[in-house]
Amino acid sequence: MKIGVVVFPGSNCDHDCQHIFKDVLGQSVEMIWHKETSLAGLDAIVLPGGFSYGDYLRTGAIAKFSPVMGLVKEFAKGGGMVLGICNGFQILLEAGMLPGAMLRNKSLHFICKDLSVKVENAATSFTSACQPGQVLKIPIAHADGNYYTDPVTLAAMQANAQIVLRYCTPEGKVTPEANPNGSLDNIAGIINAAGNVLGMMPHPERCAETVLGNDDGKLIFLSMLESLKQGKKPLQMAPA
């Protein structure tokens, strides 16, 4: 498979994503500069973490107008898989490719630590290698991960199983205490209604090989590759 990793000015997890797909999973990876005008030949696209455009104005607010984002939108419209991690998730929200917006963490702190997240939907193209309800240990590293959306959109996402990852205790209980940033409904990751665009705040690329002491994050990437192999089409979600 050929995976495209988009590089914005200020991306800093782009090489980690490249390393996992290329060195750990043996795939072909193309680094896509944000001024790129073609995404031909790519099977999936990753918007990596970092601080695109210095987080000026709002996280992801300026990156959404990068020339490459028009192509990423077209790619997703055609059913292509797009994974946004941390700042990549924030960009997907600003670009309107996923519903909602990010607010500053409730504590106002930049939080960088391992957390437990529960796989609430293991039937997506990004989580099919996980067990339903599986608890993954994945680090977060952000100041703006306090997810917000209006009650109508939240209810629709809940009904449609679009809330894929939620912060939980190590035992898998979704509690207010397990919520690191004030995120609505303990949301750590959501998917679009079509099932081919996932945004998540935790960093799976930082825990995807045993040498790092934790490879829980690898399940996300393995799920993607498996889904691509199964016919290059995302698994269909229930209609919204």
Partner: peptide, 8 residues
């Protein structure tokens, strides 16, 4: 378009 995110 840019200066405000009208969702929040």
């Amino acid at each position: 378009k840019l200066l405000a995110n009208t969702i929040v």
